[in-house]
């Protein structure tokens, strides 16, 4: 579904990604794990067209997308929940969700998706008229995921959904991510520092170190791998 071929991405003169090769198959959950500053967020920003790669190709459903502007990439079916959630603080919960559907015109489909998400996260329905900035961290994460889903993406990019959340809330969010993958058949590309959690729900995983992919395998094999255990799982 998505293929990164030989991606090099720079911030100014600093190279953040080196020859990244990575594939995501339709319907799966893949995860990219790595330490702080390894380039995980940059990878997602390259896919979304915010920090386009300087060289290499990104192919989505057979078509190159690495030269498209960010809004066109959303239209094609790739949505991102960025690190830190980026809720529009002064828009209400309902308006935030509405912004997620900015590029859609099918009123019926939008209303259906909204209902589905309100059922998935009942707290958002309760808080729909409050400004997004007033929500707790966990609620904001739910809102950020819901807003991305309002675009009805085929591929959902999630950047550190567990960041700053209590373990119980994190668990709840991860269950929902699995549920979305199962029920909506949304392909999920999950970036996480919490490698343990990510590998438990993912089908496959990639390990990123200093901007380079150093390992990729089935998630359960990575969980059992001695090096991964030592470096990322704290075992």
């Amino acid at each position: 579904m998505l293929e990164l071929r030989n991606i090099d991405t720079y911030y100014g003169n600093i190279q953040a990604l080196h020859q990244i090769d990575l594939t995501v198959e339709a319907g799966e959950i893949i995860t990219l794990i790595g330490a702080n500053g390894a380039g995980k967020s940059t990878t997602l920003m390259s896919i979304s067209g915010i920090s386009p790669p300087r060289s290499g190709e990104i192919i989505f459903k057979g078509k190159p997308i690495h030269e498209l502007p960010a809004n066109k990439i959303v239209t094609l079916g790739i949505s991102q929940v960025p690190e830190g959630r980026h809720i529009f603080p002064e828009l209400t919960v309902a308006e935030n969700l509405d912004m997620g559907a900015f590029l859609r015109n099918d009123k019926r489909g939008i209303a259906d998706d909204l209902e589905y998400l309100y059922d998935l996260f009942p707290i958002l329905r309760k808080r729909r008229n409050q400004p997004g900035g007033n929500l707790s961290g966990g609620e904001q994460q739910m809102l950020a995921i819901s807003r991305a889903l309002m675009a009805h993406p085929q591929l959902l990019l999630l950047d550190e959904p567990s960041m700053g959340l209590a373990p119980l809330v994190t668990k709840q969010i991860f269950e929902i991510i699995e549920k979305i993958n199962r029920e909506q058949n949304t392909t999920i590309f999950l970036v996480e520092q919490n490698a343990n959690l990510a590998l438990q729900i993912a089908h496959r995983g990639y390990v990123l170190e200093n901007g380079r992919i150093t390992m990729h395998d089935q998630a359960d094999k990575l969980l059992a791998n001695k090096d991964v255990q030592k470096a990322y799982l704290g075992i």
Partner: peptide, 14 residues
């Protein structure tokens, strides 16, 4: 309004 509040996110919602 969205762009004024968070430009990067505005790009990400398209």
């Amino acid at each position: 309004r969205a762009t004024a509040q968070d430009q990067k996110m505005a790009l990400l919602v398209g």
